[in-house]
Amino acid sequence: MAHRVREMMAWVVRAPISGEVVEFDEVYAGAKPRQKAGGGPTGVKSGRGPRRLVLTAVVRGGEARFRVIASHGKDDIGPAASAMVQAAGTFMTDTLPAYSMLGADRRSVKHSGKEFARTDPDGTSVHVNTAESRHADLRRMVLGVRHWISQKHLDRYLEDLAFRRSLRESDVLARLGAALSSPGRLFYRNLVASS
């Protein structure tokens, strides 16, 4: 039943977002992170583990979108970014080379050089902190509420988070009305399908 409610919520947040400043970042999600080398019991490998990569797009002060992607490459990030964002005045990213496809209206911070935020001479705040805050929301959702998210249903949980984040200023009745107005329906056979 909960997945059927998430499907109704998903219809509200599947449309691309638009905004003056849109931030992009990516995060590994969907499973508990492995412990770092030397920090865990014998036999626990370090690294990313079986988690899936999620691309996040956030309008500063506005809506958020998430999409599971296969890699950090431009062949995966490009189509996902195009599907998530309709229009933006400026894109904010880190220095991942795949983001170069966003064009000249992109500003980036160099995390490897310990740069996390800066103010350009024109007064623009350059950072991806809003997107990273959505990642914190995702981690908190896993740790505090869900405790575990299956790889199969990760998209549904991401759409749940996007719905709640994007409609956070609305009252309960407005959120309920938005979810109930969705044209979608999740059939049980689709929910339990192996793919």
Rank of each mutant, 00 (worst) to 15 (best):
P50G: 11
L167H: 14
D94T: 05
L161F: 12
P41C: 03
A162K: 09
S71T: 15
M101A: 14
P50C: 02
G40I: 08
V126F: 06
R139N: 15
G123L: 01
R140F: 03
S150P: 03
I77W: 03
L96A: 12
R52M: 01
G103I: 09
A70R: 15
A104I: 07
D122M: 08
S112G: 11
V109Y: 07
S166K: 14
R48D: 12
V128M: 01
R134T: 08
K45V: 05
R165Y: 13
L161Q: 12
R165P: 10
F66A: 06
R139L: 12
A131M: 08
R65W: 05
A70L: 02
F91K: 00
V44R: 13
S82G: 14
H147E: 02
G103P: 15
G123T: 04
P41K: 05
L53W: 14
A131V: 09
V54P: 09
V85P: 04
T42N: 04
L143S: 08
R60H: 07
G43T: 15
G39I: 01
I77F: 05
L158N: 10
L154H: 13
T56G: 09
A117I: 05
E63P: 15
G40R: 08
R165V: 11
T42E: 06
G61S: 06
R51P: 13
I69E: 01
D75S: 11
T56I: 15
A131K: 09
M84D: 06
S100H: 14
R52I: 00
G78W: 03
E63M: 10
V145L: 07
V126S: 07
A57M: 01
D155E: 12
M141L: 13
F163Q: 05
L96V: 05
G61L: 02
H111W: 09
R107F: 01
G113R: 15
A88G: 08
H147K: 06
M101H: 15
G89D: 00
V68F: 02
T90V: 14
F91N: 00
R156K: 14
G47N: 04
H72Q: 11
Q86W: 10
H135Y: 03
E132L: 02
D94M: 06
L138Y: 07
K152I: 00
E132S: 02
G39H: 14
A104Y: 06
F66H: 14
R107M: 06
Y157R: 05
V44G: 01
L154A: 12
Y99G: 02
G113M: 09
S133Q: 07
L138F: 13
L143R: 13
Y157P: 11
L154V: 12
R52N: 00
I69D: 03
S166T: 15
D155R: 12
R65P: 10
D122E: 08
A162G: 07
D75I: 08
S71W: 13
D120L: 00
L143Y: 10
V109H: 04
D120V: 00
H153S: 02
T119S: 05
T124H: 04
R156V: 08
Q86D: 12
T90Y: 04
T130S: 12
F91S: 02
A80N: 08
L154W: 13
G39L: 05
L143C: 11
R164C: 04
F116E: 00
P79R: 03
